[in-house]
Amino acid sequence: MNDESSMEIAFFGSSLVSAYWNGAATYYRGIIRALSEHGHKVTFYEPDAYDRQKHRDIPDPDWAEVVVYEVDDGTGELERMLEEARSADLVVKASGVGAFDEFLEREVPNLKDGQTRVVFWDVDAPATLDRMGEDPDDPFREQVPRYDAVFTYGGGEPVIDGYETFGAKRCVPIYNALDPQTHHPTEPVDKFTSDLSFLGNRLPDREERVEEFFLKPAAELPRHKFLLGGSGWDDKEMPSNIDYLGHVYTPDHNAFNCSARAVLNISRESMARYGFSPATRVFEAAGAGACLITDAWEGIDMFLEPGKEVLVAERGADVARMVRGLDDDRAARIGQAAKRRVLSEHTYHHRAKQIEEILEN
């Protein structure tokens, strides 16, 4: 798009300034920064919820206006935010805002007119589709056809087919990617050194897979050092060779990724089942030049070449075998190959261009 076609975008999401219990933060930041650098103006509306404002890891950025609204006194303040958004060219309602989601999903389509388009942006499409499929009374079912389009964090054809079944006019995956200004190689830090590191919050549909792909390999390799970052694991029983860090703030992610011999990605169960859903951690690690081991899911080869740019494990025993056999030289080769690939094909500028092309058609 040129300057004449730059957009005013109103974006209702969970949080742009805090990654605390907010796995979508990196994705939002990458997409929105790239859209800003392409000449679009974004106002991001986020609730003061889940103590995220107390755990900010970036100040208000210069590439977006951040508006924080209170949630304790009902929807009054949010209704004023919606009225402000009425003048935008594009209004986005993201999934999982964390406050008044059902209200926003119902009200945002009411802003649609000849100038303003409305998009539902699903950062957890497999879970949303499963939820709607299991509950014929799910209120979002009747809202899906009211949006001009559904964008998703990933999911490929299975997610596209699922959303079209529920009446979506158009469904397009906008995959995770790399923001090289944020995630890049840095010097190792002693407190983050390990043979294998994993970063992820404790969630119900991830925990069993963490047990299989991280805790079991650690138990099998007692002489190797494992490192766990993320919220919610405080009371989880785990082998003594796992050091638990708690929440790792975004500015520490590069050091976390660059200090380990290998970094592990573990998909949530629903995302692994649908496939084509690379997590932000995949691109963060690749952008830092880290050697990535990922659990197996369909579509990984769209993003990284198994064996050359990423190591793929079908089960925990494969992770243990890979960690046991990995030396520094091979880890470095894999990490550098991954970095080259994502810089050439999978940055958020690639995604911003894709969004522009979709909205032009």
Rank of each mutant, 00 (worst) to 15 (best):
W121L: 14
D137H: 12
N110Y: 07
D89M: 05
G96N: 09
V118M: 08
D122N: 09
S95H: 03
D138M: 08
E70Q: 15
A85R: 01
L90G: 00
E142W: 02
A127S: 12
D73Q: 08
M81Q: 14
L78W: 08
A127Y: 13
P136T: 04
R117W: 12
E107M: 13
D113C: 13
D130W: 04
F103D: 02
A85T: 05
V119W: 14
G74P: 13
A94H: 13
R106T: 12
K93D: 04
D101W: 12
K112N: 06
E105G: 11
T116Q: 03
V118T: 15
T75R: 08
R80C: 10
P136V: 08
V119S: 06
V144D: 00
G114I: 05
V108E: 08
G114F: 04
F120L: 14
L90Y: 01
P136I: 07
G74R: 08
E77G: 06
M132G: 03
E70G: 15
Y69R: 04
R86N: 09
P139I: 04
E142T: 09
D122Y: 02
V123A: 05
K93L: 07
F120M: 04
D137I: 01
D73W: 02
L129G: 03
P126Y: 05
E79G: 05
P126W: 02
E84V: 02
R131D: 11
R131F: 09
L90S: 03
L90C: 00
A88W: 00
P136N: 11
G76K: 12
A88E: 03
E105M: 13
V71D: 01
P109I: 01
A127G: 06
F120E: 04
A85S: 14
L78N: 03
Y69K: 06
E70F: 08
D130H: 06
R131A: 15
D137T: 10
E134N: 15
E83M: 07
A99N: 03
V92G: 01
R106A: 10
E102R: 13
P139V: 04
E83Q: 11
V119H: 09
D72N: 08
P109C: 01
L129Y: 01
L82K: 05
S95A: 06
V119C: 15
D122G: 03
